[in-house]
Computed example of a mutant assay.
Amino acid sequence: MKRLLFSFFVIASFIFQSSTAKPVTSAFLKDPETLNAGIYLVIGVFEQETNAQRMTKSASQQGLPAFYKLHSKNKLYYVYTYRALSKSKLISAYYEIRSKTPFKDAWLLTVDDKLENTRLEALGEQQEEKHTIRPTAQKNPKEEAFSLASKSLVFAFENYDDVRQELIPAQLTITDKSSSKLISKLQSDEYLSLEGGQRTTDTLLITTRALGYQESSFLLDLQSDMSSMQSLIKEIRNDTVFVQFPLKQLEVGDFQTMYNTYFYANSTVMRLQSKHELDIVYNLLSRFPNMSIKVHGHTNGNSRGVAYLYNEEKRNYFDLIRTNEYKKRGFSSTKLSEYRAETIKSYLVHKGISEERIKTYGWGGKQMLFDEDSPMAKNNIRVEIEILNK
């Protein structure tokens, strides 16, 4: 056991000495309570500060640089090892931590509060790129001859509004075009690594989804040279390929499912993980002040039963209260779906969106996608947004 522990510490020491990202130093931690703008290499997230403290201490005892701070928006505590102002500086540390330490689920968190005006002296940054989209630059002959075929590569993806030229967070599904085999599901601030010697596909089919934008797909041909994909490839830096592509806004009359908004069973109260997607809807409505939407609620079937209701005065959006005060019997599925839509509206209104811009409707089980006894029946329980005006 001692020999194993010693080997682990040797490996950990090598990782962080060789990484291109430097650990955050105490000189940077002037305000240890709040996350500043930047990209964080996160190894854990907690609702309770004491749990974040325990994990920080445990990681430090294993030889990792570990810190924790509170996110001012979602009120969760994030335990992290590194911070930088550009993703490229964290790529090496990201893969080393996931492959050579116990923290296999480490991920990159973007805190994007006036990122372009923030300077991180503790990491020795003098000037960082602004967080905007630039047109693809002219390629020189050496770049045009660059082939993606047999190399081990890291892909970084950026999605942007095709009209406003702003970066948009999106979910990406990456499959092998020839076999339709799923390769990875990730966020636009995460990375895809493909090993040259173990690669089994020549063409990647990349499908993107972002709230407020049409779903889109494009092909990345790994057998082509860079000159044939100038519209997609923004830059190649060492072994990292930076891919960018536009997203088109939803049109009036378009519907979109909120796949990451969840409610407690038999309740109009949401689960905490729904907050991220709700805030995306809020940001969307904030960016487009003329946009109005309708929130549609759906259930699995049309039975009646007991339901625990969200309370407007307490604003317990994510806090299920199982007391008789909030318990309603004989509650219909139509009312349940309507009240769920109203909970979402209440959240957005209390964040500052005008009430007149949000309509709601509860369908109950009138528009089920699958039979209510089907293995896929859980997909009937969903919330959709409809664009009424732009």
Rank of each mutant, 00 (worst) to 15 (best):
S286Y: 14
K89C: 11
T207H: 12
T299D: 13
H276I: 12
T34R: 10
I233E: 02
A66W: 01
G124M: 04
R315H: 08
A21G: 07
M55T: 12
Y94R: 05
D319R: 07
A66P: 03
R340C: 11
L115A: 08
S18A: 08
L204F: 07
F157E: 04
A37R: 00
T56K: 06
Q367D: 10
Q171F: 15
S216P: 05
K345H: 07
A52W: 03
Y40Q: 00
E342S: 10
K30P: 07
R315P: 05
N159S: 15
L219V: 14
F67S: 13
A170H: 01
A106K: 00
L369G: 02
T175E: 08
N324H: 14
R98W: 06
D112G: 14
L272V: 14
L336W: 03
D189W: 07
E325H: 08
I381R: 10
G330R: 01
T173H: 06
N283R: 10
R322K: 13
N266A: 06
P289L: 12
G196Q: 05
F288S: 13
N159A: 15
G196L: 07
E166S: 05
D239M: 08
I174K: 00
L388Q: 07
R357H: 09
G362W: 00
A149W: 01
V154W: 00
H71N: 15
M229D: 06
E277N: 02
Q187D: 15
K22L: 14
P65N: 04
Q127R: 10
V111W: 06
R209W: 08
F370N: 14
F288D: 13
T261N: 01
Y339C: 13
P141R: 03
E215D: 12
Y347Q: 00
N140F: 04
Q187E: 15
F218W: 11
S19N: 08
E338H: 14
K73R: 15
L76A: 10
L29W: 09
I293F: 02
E129P: 02
Q126M: 11
Q273V: 11
G364D: 00
F146R: 02
S217C: 07
A27E: 12
Y361I: 15
N302M: 11
F157S: 06
E128R: 09
K335R: 13
N74G: 03
I344H: 00
D371R: 10
K185M: 13
M55K: 10
A52L: 06
H71Q: 09
Y310D: 04
L182C: 03
T268F: 01
E325V: 10
K89M: 13
Y213T: 04
M368W: 02
F6Q: 13
L148E: 01
R164C: 09
F28R: 06
A84R: 04
Y213Q: 05
V252C: 02
Y191E: 14
W363Y: 15
V306D: 15
L222I: 13
F255H: 04
S88R: 07
S147R: 11
K69R: 15
L64I: 03
L186T: 09
E355W: 10
G63M: 00
Q48K: 08
E158T: 15
S99F: 07
F8C: 12
I91P: 01
S72F: 13
L336E: 05
L250Y: 02
L5V: 14
S332H: 06
R357S: 07
T25A: 13
R98V: 15
S354W: 11
N283C: 09
A122L: 04
D161P: 09
Q244T: 10
K359R: 06
G63P: 00
Y282V: 02
Y326G: 05
E325L: 11
G297C: 04
H298W: 05
S267Q: 01
